[in-house]
């Protein structure tokens, strides 16, 4: 081997050795896609349609999916898939809605759309019975596993009051766009689950939250560098009691609504109104406002209300 060949070989080895490292670094540094608010409403509420049709209306009113997803970007869609329940039981995000979002993202040129949740029941049962795994595959998206600690990466939460560090799913860190798609439900511990509470499904150790001031931890997590680009709340069938798992479909009230906002706090405040819970009751909302995550003053926001 002559000198030139040797150097070429050496640099190839060096390059492949470093291949993963700079990519990962770049991904972790990627700030949430900066979305200009110019001219668009802060919060869109749609009522009266199917979840997918309402999403179409809402996203159109918010400037179209192209405002959030650009050509070649990696998108993460994070629904609530926490329970081994069927779609009609209202415990998981509507698969039809998830499917529509994945489709639109791919249509907008997303390089890849990935979906996961760190579930409460057995993950394969949840992925299957929720209908979400099938919906995502049909739409051309990819389901990720999230049941194993090795799939999560430690992160610091510098602004956190209680939650100083946690482990987040790698896909949360290396996605360019994150679309948070919770379903609105009553919640025995947190009072309500919607946008901010749904993010408990992207970290591994939920027990830490539960034993260290649940509300503060939920609010603290909203301060990490990587935030959802967009939040969509499924409020078609709303679990009004016995949440978040629900005992039977008697716990549901059909509201045929959908909310969309880039502001996790604003969308949760609006969701609380639908759930008929005073936002004061939901301690994490005030704590998130204190962190500057978003605004709880709906009267100061531009809200678009659409009916179908």
């Amino acid at each position: 081997m002559d000198r030139r060949k040797f150097i070429a070989l050496l640099s190839t080895i060096a390059a492949s050795y470093n291949l993963k490292f700079p990519l990962a670094l770049a991904a972790e540094e990627a700030a949430p896609a900066a979305v200009a608010s110019g001219g668009f409403p802060d919060l869109v509420g749609v009522a009266g349609g199917t979840p997918a049709a309402m999403f179409d209306r809402a996203i159109a009113a918010a400037g179209g999916i192209e405002r959030f997803v650009r050509q070649g970007q990696k998108v993460l869609v994070k629904p609530n898939i926490g329970w081994d329940k069927k779609p009609e039981e209202g415990a998981n995000t509507s698969p039809e809605l998830v499917k529509r979002i994945v489709e639109l993202c791919l249509k907008a040129g997303a390089a890849e759309v990935r979906v996961f949740d760190n579930t409460c029941n057995h993950w394969q049962a949840c992925y299957g019975n929720s209908g979400i795994e099938t919906a995502v595959k049909e739409a051309g998206g990819k389901m990720l596993m999230a049941h194993e600690e090795s799939l999560f990466t430690p992160v610091d939460v510098p602004a956190g009051k209680v939650l100083k560090k946690t482990t987040v799913h790698q896909a949360w860190l290396d996605s360019d766009v994150i679309i948070n798609v919770p379903i609105l439900k009553h919640h025995g511990g947190a009072r309500m689950t919607a946008a901010m509470k749904n993010l408990m499904g992207v970290i591994f150790d939920r027990r830490y939250y539960h034993s260290n001031d649940l509300h503060q931890c939920i609010a603290d997590f909203t301060t990490i560098a990587k935030k959802p680009t967009l939040n969509v709340v499924d409020a078609y069938n709303v679990m009004m009691r016995n949440g978040p798992r629900g005992v039977s479909t008697d716990d549901l009230v059909t509201r045929k609504m959908l909310l969309l906002s880039t502001d996790m706090v604003a969308i949760d405040v609006a969701a609380a109104r639908i759930l008929e819970v005073d936002q004061q009751e939901i301690a994490y909302i005030a704590k998130a406002v204190e962190h500057g995550t978003g605004s709880n003053a709906l009267d100061k926001l531009r809200i678009e209300r659409l009916t179908m």
Binding site: G189, A190, R207, H210, N212, D213, L214, R245
Partner: peptide, 11 residues
């Protein structure tokens, strides 16, 4: 701790 939890009821 005097803080909310509810993990048991949730499940």
């Amino acid at each position: 701790n005097g803080t909310d939890c509810g993990a048991c009821a949730e499940h």
